[in-house]
């Protein structure tokens, strides 16, 4: 029994070498830090963005702990479908669609984690979960947002800029250049980007969690056959849920009126 529920086991059979994980987390943190410095960090989120992020995290929590938790009991644990994954992905896609700024994935994951700790887990196993969820799920979502640029989910109106001078200049500079995906109809684009994020999200749970976090926190043997099968088996669900999530996002963002 180690500190704060972390056993700190680094040599479980088949565990991903800790150097690799450390390198990944280190590079991830460095990237986040440098990107934040370059783009203004948290200051680039407007008050409205922060409220959207908070609400998205609240939905993810309500799903994870109350509604989804009980629906999930009807489905035995299996590698093909996860009810928690479904709700969390859709909630986070909606937040990404409403905010449309790089960094939203990580900030939303951070808030989601903090809130789940406050209302249920009591900071057990932290700070491993903060690092894991922000730098896998959050970072992957942010990479897709960065690539999609102004065409995220086919929502073509510019995102809100904070009311500082620097932001306004950047907004003018950006508005001229046409995006890479601007010819694709919005509905397809929303589905494609939903699927991309969905498939990305199918990887960390089997790979990182079963391959490192779980043996690191609790010990045990890592079964690589099960991990690879887990990733492949989950992809159909990821595609379907991702597409649906993308479309729901497009619909909600339009209904909210941007």
């Amino acid at each position: 029994m180690g500190l704060n529920g972390i056993s700190g086991i680094l040599n479980a059979p088949g565990e991903i070498p800790w150097e690799v994980v450390l390198l990944f987390f280190g590079a991830g943190l460095l990237f986040v830090f440098l990107w934040g410095k370059k783009t203004g960090g948290l200051a680039k989120f407007t008050t409205l963005d922060l409220i959207y992020i908070g609400m998205g995290a609240a939905f993810a929590v309500v799903w994870e702990f109350y509604i989804g938790a009980f629906l999930g009991k009807f489905i035995p644990p299996n590698p093909f479908f996860g009810i928690g994954y479904t709700g969390r992905l859709i909630a986070l896609l909606i937040v990404a669609g409403l905010v449309r700024k790089v960094g939203v994935g990580m900030v939303a994951m951070f808030i989601f984690n903090l809130l789940s700790d406050l209302i249920s887990y009591g900071f057990s196993g932290e700070p491993m979960y903060f690092l894991y969820e922000m730098l896998t799920y959050g970072l992957m979502m942010d990479i897709v947002i960065a690539i999609a640029g102004k065409n995220l989910f086919g929502i073509r109106s510019p995102s809100r800029k904070p009311s500082t001078g620097k932001g306004k200049i950047e907004a003018n500079k950006n508005s001229g250049s046409p995006g890479l995906f601007s010819n694709i109809p919005a509905v397809y684009l929303a589905a494609i980007e939903g699927i991309t994020i969905g498939v990305f999200w199918a990887v960390p749970e089997p790979l990182f969690y079963s391959g490192f976090i779980a043996p690191f926190l609790y010990g045990g043997v890592v079964d690589w056959g099960a991990i690879l099968f887990g990733i492949v088996a989950f992809i159909p669900t990821a595609i379907i849920v991702g597409a649906i999530g993308g479309l729901i996002t497009l619909r909600i963002v339009k209904a909210v009126g941007q």
């Binding site: 200051a43 992020i53 908070g54 609240a58 951070f110 903090l114 809130l115």
Partner: peptide, 20 residues
């Protein structure tokens, strides 16, 4: 904890009962 983060967290805390 930065004010932006706590603000978002507080919004989330207030939103949970409102969702129900």
């Amino acid at each position: 904890v930065p004010i932006s983060i706590t603000f978002s967290l507080v919004i989330a805390m207030r939103t949970v009962p409102r969702i129900f």
